[in-house]
Design a protein around this nucleic acid. Structure first.
Length: 891
RNA sequence: GCGCGAGUGGUGGAAUGGCAGACACGCCAGACUUAGGAUCUGGUCCCGAAAGGGGUGGAGGUUCAAGUCCUCUCUCGCGCACCA
């Protein structure tokens, strides 16, 4: 296809201009702002500015990518274009915009590549970053590249390790509900060290963890999906190992409450709520009939205690072996064996068919002293609640299924509302067959029985969470080493100790073999010299998970080159909107756009770290991200998810080569609402590309362009300077605009402005198209009108707009040109068309004066011939007049 | 099973409760052209020659008026899933 316009010259030209001029440099308080920078000129600043002197901030952030070897995917530019449009828009609106980009570059693919080829992950990562950088820069985003960060850079991960030390050296004080320095923890005189270690926010655990053989590492709960690794989909097994954990569960309540104060989509908040999984209920003690320790269960339905006809323990419950009777021992052992053989996949997949065995033991129901049998079954999970339940088959679907299968008694203790079956009823009803709870509605029965249990010392009210502590160590090479050493004790054991801050960054040793050792130790263990210190202590050989770097990168962006702090206080306060200078800024990142895949990973983890940093006084906002939007997935042209195997993957490089970056940007925004899942369409790209061609032809002189094209062809010249040969169209003149032209322009200003405020990029673009479709018919195009149009266009198609803006004159760049102001008086019409309905059906349209009164509208409507015809002479019951809208005659 | 979201032309999608289908894609016709896969002009929800009628997954309801609000229901997508 013939090029619609020379984007192949225009785009590199302007990208180079922006880069060499540092056009999009965001200025911190105290930065020496050059007087000739367009930002300085727009805001009348030069030299260092205080937060008070700087305009209000706007912090707009993308989820920074993992630079994979595959390069950019068309999904990346979707979110990046949306943020870039808004960044440019906010600059035009006069805000000081922070719009940064960086690389979340620690990660498994580079390491696996290293294992296969021996190439150091550093090399792979650098090469991949170079590719991502080239591709992202080719899209013309207005990032402040002076703040670029790379999580694998020691200047960066020094501070990741520093934050880990803060976690390690803090505890969560339930009395204040906040993290506090570990020195403030009141410790018992004996075993003070062990006590402190048991309270740290970063602690060592020996509990069973998810181990992925294929990846050779452990994984966090959040990284295990349907019993398989999130990365690669490999099987995982449960295995006890010594691991670092972060006490995120201490923050469960805060993480839940914080959601109320931030502007995220309801579905995303719901995903976080589900993941945290708060449920209120009670713990109840069931003594064993044979004596010994009682079994504690967690229930959300203590009101159904009288309906508990048996108990179930998870097969892994620690009491199982102790309580099993001789006669059942073989059966229990066989069942436990069967359960451990089952993979977690099978265990969850076979959710339908209940299995279990009787232990031979009995417990006493504390409310009625009834002897009830104790079973084990794998439908009770060791990892939730207390790993034991009281079974109420009358009012729990799973218990009922189990009771029916094993012929256990079912008792109704809740009366369902009229018309519903009480057996198996799980909603709120009225207690029956429950002694002193009888006739109470469920919520009251819950309260009464809980109080009763507490008084008798048989139980207490509790809150349970699905959220588990965050497994924070990995058996990998390509991650941040822990700033921890293990000190030998006289008894031969080792105890962890934090490195001092002065020892940071702790860089990983150089290796040539990145596989785990033959004994299953992490790869870092191969570096004997690095691991074994002269004083006999050893370094921690686990590394941090990939999430560590992304937990706080948005803070680093506020002050990315600071070598003495993770970010400066003034910069943090200015960009996070809490500086006393105020400006009425929003607290936190103003807008964060990224994929929904991080809903319970990155977004939960970084909220947790941020909360800790807030408690310790290092950051000034309780939440990091004020507003968050998830862009919808882009599907292949066939409506299927893009994948190599389907062969429907679209490469942005190909699109840019053929249609240019502006067309790609514009199309990705024109496809539909940002948050929606939508299929790719190459035809659609051609459509917006043609639109950009029309814009071009609207501005340039055809004759000069033809000559330019011929020259290009003849000389094979690819020099952007030759673009100067293309002249502005003679139809653009310093002429006063007609009323109709102003109307077209201001309708466009209004629509584009409102749509950008509401992130409706697709309809904003259609408004620009409407302007062009009209302007193309104008014989004379007033320069002022056309310039305003270019300012409206420039966030969407910045290269083309800058090039045409340059030809039109009026400054070296449009990047800081003030956004046009909408004037409603220019849209005012003398007359308007009003639809007239008879009984709600459209029958005619009348032209009336804009300011017509209700009475005038009514009279004009009734006078319409067509309306008369449809009224068939019937009497009028009612006339609805909505001024400026419509008239409806009811007969 | 539970939670969230979405169902509108041949396609992507527009519509503060007030003219359904903006803007595009595709298609049809025409103009200019050696040529058109460039560009420009016109047409394009369905039935009907027209007048007119029908129409936003389906069924009800509220309203002068419903794509939009309410109830039930179906389908698709996403998330969680034996969470006691």
């Amino acid at each position: 296809m013939r090029r619609q316009y020379p984007f192949h010259l225009i785009e590199p030209k302007w990208q180079r201009f922006w880069e060499t001029q540092a056009t999009f440099r965001a200025w911190n308080p105290g930065d020496d702002i050059p007087a000739n920078h367009p930002f300085a000129q727009r805001h009348g600043l030069r030299g260092p500015a205080t937060p008070e002197q700087l305009p209000p901030k706007f912090y707009i952030l993308d989820m920074f990518p993992y630079p994979s070897g595959a390069g950019l995917h068309v999904g990346h530019p979707e979110g990046y274009t949306a943020t870039d449009i808004l960044a440019r828009y906010q600059r035009a609106r006069g805000r000081n915009v922070l719009h940064p980009m960086g690389w979340d570059a620690f990660g498994l693919p580079a390491e696996q590549y290293a294992i296969r080829t021996g190439q150091h992950p550093r090399k792979t990562t650098e090469a991949n970053i170079a590719v991502f950088q080239r591709q992202i820069k080719a899209l013309g985003f207005s990032y402040d590249w002076s703040r670029e960060i790379d999580t694998t850079d020691p200047h960066y991960f020094k501070w990741t390790q520093w934050i880990f030390l803060k976690l390690y050296n803090s505890w969560f004080n339930p009395a204040t509900g906040k993290a506090e320095p570990i020195e403030n923890l009141p410790c018992p005189a004996e075993n003070a060290d062990a006590f402190r270690d048991s309270k740290r926010l970063a602690y060592v655990s020996h509990a069973p963890v998810w181990w992925c053989e294929e990846l050779g590492t452990v994984l966090a709960n959040e990284e295990v999906i349907d019993g398989k690794s999130e990365v690669g989909g490999f099987p995982v097994t449960r295995r006890p190992m010594r691991q670092w954990m972060l006490r995120i569960t201490a923050y469960a309540e805060r993480l839940l409450a914080g959601l109320e104060k931030i502007d995220w989509s309801e579905s995303l908040k719901e995903m976080q709520r589900n993941w945290i999984g708060r449920s209120e209920g009670a713990e109840v003690q069931f003594p064993l009939a044979a004596g010994g320790p009682a079994i504690t269960v967690f229930t959300t339905r203590p009101d159904t205690l009288y309906g508990a006809t048996y108990m179930v323990l998870a097969p892994e419950h620690p009491l199982v072996d102790a309580i099993t009777s001789e006669s059942q021992r073989a059966a229990v052992a066989a069942y436990k064996n069967e359960v451990t053989r089952k993979s977690d996949m099978e265990r969850t997949d076979l959710a339908h068919d209940k299995t279990g065995v009787f232990t031979g033991a009995f417990a006493i129901n504390p409310v009625n002293n009834e002897k009830i049998p104790v079973w084990i079954a794998d439908y009770v999970l060791a990892s939730y609640g207390t790993g034991a339940i009281m079974a109420v088959p009358g009012h729990d679907t799973r218990d009922l299924e189990f009771a029916r299968k094993f012929d256990l008694p079912v008792r109704v203790v809740v009366q369902a509302p009229k018309g519903e079956e009480s057996t198996g009823f799980i909603g709120d009803g009225t207690s029956v067959n429950s002694d002193f709870l009888n006739n109470l509605p469920t919520p009251e029965a819950k309260k009464k029985i809980t109080t009763w249990l507490e008084e008798k010392g048989l139980g207490r009210k509790t809150v349970n969470y699905k959220l588990r502590d965050w497994l924070f160590s990995r058996q990998r090479y390509w991650g941040e080493p822990f700033p921890i050493v293990w000190k030998p004790s006289p008894d031969g054991s080792f105890h962890h100790q934090a490195l001092p801050e002065s020892a940071l960054p702790l860089v990983p040793p150089d290796l040539s073999d990145f596989k785990p050792t033959s004994t299953g130790e992490p790869p870092l263990a191969r570096a004997k010299q690095w691991v074994e210190l002269p004083d006999g202590s050893k370094r921690e050989t686990n590394t941090m998970p990939q999430w560590a770097g992304s937990c706080w990168y948005y803070l680093r962006f506020t002050d990315a080159r600071n070598d003495s702090k993770f970010c400066g206080t003034e910069a943090e306060q200015y960009w996070m909107g809490t500086h006393p200078a105020g400006h009425g800024a929003r607290p936190g990142v103003d807008l964060y756009i990224g994929g929904v895949e991080h809903a319970v990973l990155h977004l939960l983890y970084s909220r947790f770290w941020h909360s800790v940093l807030f408690d310790l006084g290092y950051v000034s906002t309780p939440e990091p991200f004020f507003k968050l939007v998830n862009q919808g997935l882009i599907l292949g042209e066939d409506g299927q998810k893009m994948s190599k195997t389907r062969g429907n993957v679209v490469n942005p490089d190909d699109i840019m080569r053929e249609f240019g970056a502006d067309a790609l940007r514009l199309f990705e925004m024109f496809m539909g609402p940002l948050e929606m899942v939508k299929p790719w369409s190459t035809k659609g790209v051609e459509g917006v590309y043609r639109f950009l061609g029309r814009v071009w032809r609207l501005f340039v002189d055809e004759q000069s362009e033809t000559e330019f094209e011929q020259m290009q062809t003849a000389q094979g010249a690819q020099n952007p300077d030759t673009l100067a040969a293309i002249k502005l169209s003679a139809s653009i003149a310093d002429a006063p605009a007609t009323a109709a032209q102003l109307k077209t322009l201001h309708a466009c200003i209004k629509k584009v402005t409102e749509d950008l405020d509401g992130f409706r990029f697709n309809t904003a673009i259609s408004a620009l198209m409407i302007f062009v479709n009209d302007a193309i018919t104008w014989e004379t195009k007033p320069a002022a009108v056309m310039r305003d149009f270019l300012i409206l266009l420039h966030p969407f198609a910045p290269h083309l707009a800058e090039e045409l803006g340059g030809k039109l004159g009026g400054g070296p760049t449009l990047a800081y040109a003030p956004w046009p102001k909408f004037d409603p008086t220019l849209l005012a019409e003398d007359t308007i068309e009003i639809p007239v309905q008879v009984n709600g059906k459209l029958r005619d349209k009348i032209i009336v004066a804009t300011g017509s009164t209700e009475a005038e509208l009514k009279a004009a409507a009734l006078a319409s011939e067509k309306v008369q015809q449809f009224m068939e002479g019937k009497p009028i019951k009612k006339v609805i007049v909505v001024p400026k809208r419509l008239v409806n005659i009811v007969i």
